[in-house]
Amino acid sequence: MSTYYDPQDLPRFAEIGQQAPELAQKFFDYYGAVFAEGELSAREKSLIALAVAHALQCPYCIDAYTQACLDKGSNLAEMTEALHVACAIRGGAALVHGVQMRKQAQKLSL
């Protein structure tokens, strides 16, 4: 496989702990605690993770949280709406910078 992203790398994630086991353990413990049932359900957290995965455009996370969302009882309509939330925030974040663009353009223009 000669690409940057290989689906078989995802199950090897734990290997990242080989050079820094204590830090990796802290991270994985934290990660597990974040996704446990809390004020938000595990299902809701997986939908948030799916949206963030798309915003970050992480193919590992997209695969993992598509599976997790389905496992936790979400359906494709809910997952698509979550994705639009990510899209709206990314798009809005780009567009709101237009105010800065307009201010700068006005400053430079007659």
Binding site: E37, S41, A42, R43, Q67, L70, D71, K72, G73
Partner: peptide, 9 residues
Amino acid sequence: FQAPEQAAT
């Protein structure tokens, strides 16, 4: 995919 958690469902 897996069956979702029963009580929450």
